[in-house]
Structure formats: C-alpha cells, structure tokens
Design a protein around this nucleic acid. Structure first.
Length: 608
DNA sequence: CGAAGGATGAGGAATGAT
DNA sequence: ATCATTCCTCATCCTTCG
C-alpha cells in the first residue's frame, strides 16, 4: 500500500520552518507590490485605443475597417463581390498583397529584428526549421494573387524575403494591432505562423487583458466590445476559411492536424503492449530544466491541439485514455518534456472494471447492460427525475425489457454515468466513488465548507491521478532529494497527489488556484499528509508576473517541474453554451501557462 | 422575511470512428 | 451516411440562516 507512505522517513534534513515562512512572506509582499507595476504595463500599451474604430458605417463594413482596410478598398471589394464576408476579405487581402509585393525593402528594420532573434527559447529552434520553410510553403506558388507575404511570416535573417517579417507586421498594424503586439505574436508563434494564427495570439492576449482584474473598469467594456463584435473568433473563422481555400491539396491543413491515436495509449501504458512506433522529437531547447507537464481534454475543437503544440515548442502531445489505468474513461492530451523510458505505475493498481470498482453494483447489474468501463466523469450528475424515469421504464417488465427500452436506458446511463444500486434502480456516483476512480484518497474533497455540487465540479475538472503519476514516475530517480514544483491551475491538487503517491518529496510547491474551496482542499491535504515542505498559494495566474517569478526562483533556486492543465470550459464537448476554443473566456488562460513557463525557462537559464 | 448559497433539471453540437 | 462520446452553463427553485 502506498496510501500513507510516511512523512516520517527522511527526517535527516533540517527543515527550518521559520526561515521558510520568512521567505514566503518576502515573496508574497514583493509580489503584491508588483501588482501596480503590472497594472501600469497593461494600461500603457494602448491597444484599446488603437483598436477603436469609427462607428458610423454599417456593421458589415466596420468589420473590415477594424482590420485596417481603407473604406475605399472595402467599397471596391464589396462592389466586386457583394456582401459576402469571405469573398470581400479575400479581395481585400489580394489588394493589400498587390500593393505590398512590388517594393523591395532595402534591409531589415533595426527595431524589429533584435526583439525576434533575441528570444532565447525559440531562436535556435527557428533556425533549424528555416530551411524547410520555402519548400513547404504553399503560398509562394500561388502566383495569382500573391498572398504569400501575408499568409505566413518568415524569420529569416538574410536572403531575399527578409521583408516578410515587416510585411506581416505592417499588415497586422493595418489591422489595428500595435507593432509591439505583432512582434511579440510573431516571436511566440514561430516562423511558420500564418496570419490567422498571429491574429489568434493577439486576440487571446487582448482578451486575457480584458479579463485582467487590475485593468481599470472603464477600459474593460470597451475592449470586450471590440473583441466580441469585431475581433477574436469571428475574424479567426474567416481567416481559416481563407486558408482552406487558398491552400493547395498536397499540404493540407488536415494532414498537419494532430490525429488522436487508436488505441489512445500515448507513448505507452503499463497494461497494453508498447506501441510500435514511438518517435519522440524533443528540440534541444525544450529539454529541462525545468520539466513541464501540460494537460487538457483530447477532444477539443479542431485546431486547438495544433495551437497548443505550436505554443509549447512543437512537442508532440501524448494522448492517453485513463481507461487503461482505471474503471473510467478520460481522454486527455498531455504535452511534456519528460523522459518516457522506465516509467512505472502507482501501486496498488486501481480497479479497472466497474464491477471491481463498485462490487456492490454487481448484484443489480442487468445482463443487457454490457458496460465494463464508465464514461468520462464530468462536473454535473444525472438528476433524480431521470433515475425515476428509468426505474419506471424498467420495472414494468419482469424479464428483460424490450430492446427499445434497453436502448433508452443504456443511452441515459452512459450519458450520465449511472450505476445500478438496487432492483431496477440506477443512481449517479457518490463523490467518494469519484474520488476513488480518479485516484484521490477518500474524503479528499469532503468537508471544510465545500458543497456537494462543488465537490462534483472540482472532481470533474481534475486529473486522473494514476495516469498522471505514470508519466511523472520518471522524476523519482532524477530527484531523490525532492523537487520544487510550480503548479498552475492546481484544482484539487492532482499533480501534487500524484507526486506524493510516487514517493517524490515536495520541497517547495507554488500552487495557483482560483477557487478558494480548492485551495482549502489542497491545504488540508498538505497538512493531513504531514508534508514538510513549503506550500505557497496564489489565487490568480495574473499575479505571477516576471518579477514575481524572479523572486520565487531566487528564493529557492528554481523550479524542477511546471505542471498544470489550463481551463477546458471552452473546449469541452459538454459545453453547449460557450465552446469557443482557446479564445474562450476561461480557456484563453492557456496563454498564461505559456507565458509563465517561458518566463521560468528564461529566468532559470539566466540563473545557471 | 429576505438574502445568499446550494440543488436541480433542461438544454445540442462538434468531432471522430465506422 | 449513422453512431458514440463529451474535465458543461444557466435559470429557477429550494433551503438555510440571520
């Protein structure tokens, strides 16, 4: 049993609690002070004003005005194509490209290049793949409308197309985006980034700022209004349409799109034969420290994982269904730079069928319900009304109900993860059953003021501990003296629990979690398991500015692991209201994960 | 008795597999 | 083409508490 592995062992180290608290206090106060600085930065870049537009013309025209096209060219494009957004945009881009293409820029702009080439985490990688850009680029052969310069941006220090950067920047500027933001986006998106991708990045950044709690209230509505009405998703969709039309068949977006493996076992799971072809390409710059581990739903809207991959150094994500670790399915993508050799699972191995996990249900389980695995545990549970309807539907028959009834009952049971708890009686899982299925200790989320509804919600949003622990197990030999962890979007502490159950000592854990109830859960678990290390909580990723990270890293010498799964609200299939992709209100916090990881990497590389 | 918070139930579509 | 799956949101009702 690994359930209570000590807290008693390894007492040879002198844990000076008072010193640590002092460090903690210093960090806290300094980070709090940084808020004003951060706020100032946000307010001073002026993207709100640069994005504002005259509101006198029709909405159809406005959407192009806000992109930076002149009213004359818009009028011309509408005249030629009618009020069809895609066609008009197409024409406008063509005008623009034709305007831009004849001129030859004499040299690279001195202001722009340093900011691009000085990035320590991307420049080397960029150089490696530059050679292929031209061959792969399908836009350059599209001579008809010369879309090439705006379709992609090139990071090339020499050669004939050195004006590509500037053209892209110029184009973005014409769309109303400040040069600074365009430059950052190009730097972050990499050399192959297309225009829609760059626009994505900038919009996401702007939206993140619109949500910034420290942004003055009078700026927020303006920003949001602009983003909602004219920018963001709508714009992106239009550009996507454009991409598909313009790209020749041979290198299609479909081929570039990440495909989910079948069976979904990633780079391998303990219970299945190892996949035959595991090629793992880790660019040199991405190899730790720090190690990082990012998680999100596998079944996200199209293109989301491509974007995630692009923002996380082009590392191939590992898609794993937790059905190979537990009695419940959980299809997730994990993107990390961990070694994948010599992994080992948590012991004891958890039950892997419904009957093993819920032995009492076996007695009542009808033979025609052939489920052996539960579906994904979500944040909401089936209603009493539904279980009542099912009972009434089934109890009318002494024997097996007719096929139609079976079909209906099975559909609902799968949809809501209902289990048989009595004769003709189904019920949703209890919270402690969900805890067990996800690999948490019993009562992990119980008590301390959390409501039952919120328990389900927190659990539904969590890691499957056994799955994550399998991936993290390689850290045990690498860090025999324990590790420092930066845990973003910690939730109920799935990462922490996984590390603890692996027997990896937690020296310093900086945990960022919005929900107070969740922070209490982690704090309580921390105390109950007699952790000797240092737990520092933040409630908002926005607070982790570069200065703040600098201080944290300075205080205990850097992070060994950055772990977290950013919000999936706007990616998950069950969201019928706001499945908006990575630009969504919550899911756009992914970009904060990237920002923070990037800062940690660059600060730590400087410290070394 | 009213405010606050918890519980309830109604509510499809995107996506990939076949 | 059909089928299966999906870390969900929101308005409303109910309970609790002062």
């Amino acid at each position: 049993m690994d359930k209570n592995p000590s807290g008693e062992d390894n007492d040879d180290i002198d844990w000076d609690t008072e010193d640590e608290l002092e460090i903690q206090d210093t960090v806290f106060s300094s980070c709090t002070n940084l808020r004003t600085t951060g706020q100032h930065v946000v307010c001073s870049n002026g993207e709100a004003s640069s994005s504002s537009v005259p509101f006198q013309s029709s909405k159809f025209i406005q959407q192009f005005v806000v992109m930076g096209f002149t009213e004359e060219s818009i009028a011309k494009a509408i005249e030629q194509n009618g009020e069809n957004s895609d066609l008009v945009l197409d024409a406008l881009l063509t005008f623009k490209a034709l305007d831009d293409s004849p001129e030859e820029q004499p040299s690279t702009s001195p202001q722009l290049e340093p900011s691009i080439s000085s990035d320590d985490s991307f420049s080397e990688y960029n150089e490696n793949i530059l050679d292929d850009v031209y061959e792969e680029d399908s836009w350059s052969s599209d001579s008809d409308n010369c879309i090439n310069p705006v379709g992609r941006c090139y990071l090339n220090d020499e050669g004939s197309s050195l004006s590509g950067n500037e053209k892209t920047l110029l184009f973005l500027a014409n769309m109303g985006y400040p040069e600074e933001e365009g430059s950052i986006a190009m730097k972050r998106c990499g050399p192959e980034a297309s225009l829609p991708e760059l626009v994505d990045f900038i919009c996401a950044a702007q939206m993140a700022r619109a949500e910034d709690p420290y942004l003055p209230e009078d700026v927020k509505p303006k920003l949001k209004h602009i983003l909602n009405d004219f920018g963001g998703y709508k714009k992106r969709k239009m550009y996507n349409g454009l991409c598909k039309r313009k790209k020749p068949r041979e290198i299609s977006a479909e081929e570039e799109t990440i495909r989910l493996p079948k069976p979904m076992i990633g780079f391998g799971v303990p219970t299945e034969p190892v996949p035959t072809m595991v090629q793992r390409f880790l660019p040199k710059k991405t190899i730790g420290p720090p190690f990082f581990y990012y998680e999100n739903v596998a079944l996200a809207p199209k293109g989301v994982w491509d974007t995630i991959k692009r923002f996380l150094y082009e590392i191939e994500p590992e898609f794993v269904d937790s059905r190979y670790f537990s009695a419940t399915q959980r299809k997730r993508g994990y993107l990390h730079n961990l070694p994948i050799e010599n992994r080992f699972p948590l012991f004891p191995l958890p039950p892997r069928t419904i009957h093993e996990a819920l032995p009492l249900s076996k007695k009542w389980w009808p033979s025609w319900d052939t489920r052996t695995k539960l579906n994904c545990l979500q944040t909401a549970i089936g209603s009493a009304k539904l279980t009542d309807k099912i009972r009434k539907a089934v109890e009318k028959y002494d024997d097996e109900p007719p096929l139609e009834v079976q079909k209906y009952v099975l559909y609902q049971c799968k949809k809501w993860n209902l289990v048989w708890v009595g004769r003709n009686k189904v019920a949703p899982l209890e919270p402690d059953e969900v805890e067990m299925l996800l690999g948490f200790p019993k009562n992990h989320t119980r008590g301390g003021g959390i409501s039952r509804t919120d328990r389900y919600k927190s659990l539904g949003n969590s890691f499957q501990v056994d799955t994550v622990a399998y991936h993290l197990s390689v850290l045990k030999d690498l860090f025999p003296d324990g590790i420092n962890v930066l845990s973003l979007f910690s939730g109920i502490g799935g990462g922490e629990v996984a590390l603890y159950r692996l027997g990896i000592r937690l020296n310093n854990v900086v945990s960022v979690e919005k929900s107070e109830a969740n922070r209490n859960i982690v704090r309580s678990w921390w105390e109950q398991t007699n952790q000797r290390g240092n737990l520092i909580h933040f409630d908002d990723v926005q607070l982790l500015s570069r200065d703040c990270l600098e201080k944290l890293i300075g205080s205990f010498g850097g992070f060994d692991l950055v772990i977290g799964g950013s919000p999936c609200n706007n990616l998950a299939g069950s969201n019928r209201v706001s499945r908006d992709g990575l630009e969504g209100k919550e899911s756009s916090l992914f970009f904060d994960y990237v920002r923070i990881l990037d800062d940690v990497k660059s600060i730590m590389s400087r410290h070394r």
